[in-house]
Design a protein around this nucleic acid. Structure first.
Lengths: 407, 407
DNA sequence: TTTGTTAGTAAAGGTCACTAACAAACAAAA
DNA sequence: TTTTGTTTGTTAGTGACCTTTACTAACAAA
């Protein structure tokens, strides 16, 4: 690896950069500048943690509204101009923030120096392993704007071959990066624990696979791995305008979901939050599922199942009835969740030609019928606006949160 | 009010005590020493916030394991002995911590001075407004040990009369306090927002009632109000051995629940989290509910409904069948919630002669049948161990959390 | 008596954000 | 044009906080 490559491949954020350019060195540990990182259950807090929290706040403010001056930030965040200047000084040194020049509009006082996140100074790599037959990945800037895409056919590929395929597409993406890589985010199907170990992903034949560790060693970069539907919820929250109490349901080969409760991602007692595909819906039977039960949500909502039913439909009315039934079943299954968590939003992700129409309308109707209007009156049931990139974007959010504390 | 009374009634925790003894002064604002309080969305963090967080950690450690020395605390919390000594100095000055004497067991080195929370130095007042015909309340020490109880018949009492009744029982409890009162916690039925305003409590005829503000003014004490089932979940978490991902379902006149997700209480987008009584269960109809729908969870699980059905049962088998059906319906309704949140525990609260038996067994069976064993394999479905005091204890937890940051 | 260990305190040092004060740069009024 | 007032960003000094280092007190074991 040449020096330039090392330069490009290694995030310049950490002060330990120089030590990490060796091919077999240890990758940068994920910097938990997010406050949440410091305040995990029963962790002491030092002034330096306050500093990283405030630093993350500044970055967040710059993320959300571009074109802020130091004084603007001071007002926004609540710190003094002095402290903001100090923090911004650090951030500029780390090349995370840049000065855009003086504010042009005419008003009294010294003209302000406009600042912004260095949106193109770093890139993020996002990987989507959720499709059955192909892995997808992208290089994005810090905005989530896709700069480069890669796809890889993985039909029938499982086990360690699938790991190799993941490493291969990651390698290609890393090679395509035009700026230092802040980190790598991976959305994997199955159950993924907090350490990025895939506890179980039947489709890929993975069990207790420490994917984060493997990829991090290979790429010499900070890597974060999480469940695909879960990070889709993250993406919707950050880039799709999702609220603080939200559920994202993803219909594909199977059915999964991700939950944001009180602004926080839900992980669950066994890292299996969102796994609603094999919850039985209703009390009137249903088709047999691969899991052995009858009438699982997946038998109603999985895309192959819907397509199979639609294949027998001859009229438009039949087609609509099939889609409405799928939506109804989704409504029946999610009504207790929406009620118990008092969710404000249910967002759907999947092929829009099937989902965005009678299905989603029926789901909304059913949800309203089966819950108390007083509690869920302003419930919004809608399609995601992020389309097929939602997993990749979720991976980006994961990296931004993990490395910069931005969310 | 005499000086002694003022002394007793006012928490000695705050440095502003002297200013708050006036009959019509403003009560101590709730001290948010908890870190969560300081780190609400987008709040800057100063070194002093770190201090209060660490202080709360020390208090928590002392709460959980009594008989710790300063050096033990240093090891436990991760701060140095010097810092712990400093924090403990403050806490002893505020009478929140006491020295128990030197450790007696024989080991090398200087014998340690044992410390403990001053468990009887302060009391907490808890109020339970959840019963239809009577308000209940208790004075407890910081352990949650009940020192004194009060009950008040409120059959048919609603609206402002119910507020007066609440104030009356609170007054009696305050008069019975034998130590400075740390704060007052109130568990109210209905929907209660973060400011302690009862947005809606049909049974009591309350709507947009700022109960926390009213009681706080009357009693000149910090008051916190929340939904009854929600704080029951808090109680179960702190005093009942509940885990970090847990649901507590409370069957009474109606059906409510409280959720702990990732160790945090769930509030919901409209402060209505846990309201599952009027979620429809199954797809095969059911009795008409007061809300107009058919087959709401309440029509299956509310105690009056169960009792009405049992009145017609002649044999033990019939009785058991009725209870099993109620449990099944509970299982059907909660299965999607347990699956989506990957809960580790479902705890029931209510009259144990009805719930603790076929009902809970059927609920557990149904939950396991309708979810994926792989995800909820170690799901525990059980009765609360806290009995009728659960709401009062929840109120205590709320005060401990709000005033001391302990949870 | 000596040695080693543990508890708690004291002093010094570094980090962090604050207040106060100031120069630079501008608009608008005089 | 000069003066006044406003806004920005920086410098200097202060206080809060936790750490490291160093110390004394008190004990067990050899």
């Amino acid at each position: 690896m040449t020096t330039e490559e090392a330069q490009r491949r290694t995030s310049g954020v950490s002060a330990t950069t120089a030590a990490n350019t060796g091919e077999f060195g240890i990758a940068n540990p994920a910097r938990s500048t997010a406050w949440a990182g410091a305040v995990q259950a029963g962790a002491r807090v030092l002034p330096e943690h306050a500093r990283s929290h405030n630093r993350a706040l500044v970055l967040q403010a710059l993320f959300r509204a571009e074109g802020l001056s130091r004084a603007d930030l001071a007002r926004e965040v609540g710190l003094t101009r002095v402290t903001i200047s100090d923090l911004i000084g650090d951030l500029i040194n780390e090349n995370l923030v840049i000065e855009l020049g003086v504010r042009t509009d005419s008003r009294p006082g010294k003209p302000a120096t406009m600042l912004d996140i260095n949106r193109n100074g770093f890139v993020v790599v996002g990987l989507d392993l959720s499709f059955n037959s192909r892995f997808r990945g992208a290089v994005t800037n810090l905005d989530g704007t896709v700069l480069h895409r890669e796809e890889l056919d993985v039909t029938g590929v499982t086990g360690s071959e699938a790991v190799e395929a993941t490493a291969l597409i990651l390698e290609r993406l890393v090679a395509a990066a035009t700026a230092p890589i802040l980190g790598v985010g991976v959305g994997s199907p199955g159950i993924v624990d907090a350490t990025g170990t895939v506890l179980s992903a039947p489709n890929l034949g993975w069990k207790d696979l420490p994917l984060q560790q493997i990829l991090s060693m290979r790429a010499q970069l900070p890597v974060q791995v999480a469940n695909d539907a879960n990070i889709a919820a993250l993406a919707e929250r950050t880039f799709g305008g999702g609220g603080a109490d939200m559920m994202l349901v993803r219909a594909g080969r199977g059915v999964g979901s991700g939950l944001i409760v009180g602004g926080q991602q839900v992980y669950g007692s066994g890292s299996a939050a969102g796994e609603i595909g094999h919850v039985m819906v209703g009390t009137d039977g249903g088709d047999i599922c691969v899991c052995g039960k009858s009438g699982c949500l997946e038998t109603w909502l999985a895309i192959p199942r819907i397509e199979a039913r639609l294949a027998n439909a001859t009229t438009e009315a039949e087609r609509e009835s099939i889609l409405r039934e799928a939506g109804e079943r989704l409504g029946i299954a999610t009504a207790p969740i929406v009620g118990a968590l008092n969710l404000g939003e249910v967002v759907l992700s999947g092929p829009s030609e099937l989902i965005d129409g009678p299905l989603i309308a029926a789901a909304a109707d059913t949800l309203r019928d089966r819950t108390m209007a007083e509690f869920v009156g302003d419930l919004s049931v809608r399609m995601t606006t992020l389309g097929r990139d939602i997993i990749v974007l979720g991976a980006v959010v994961m990296v931004l949160t993990g490395q910069l504390g931005v969310y």
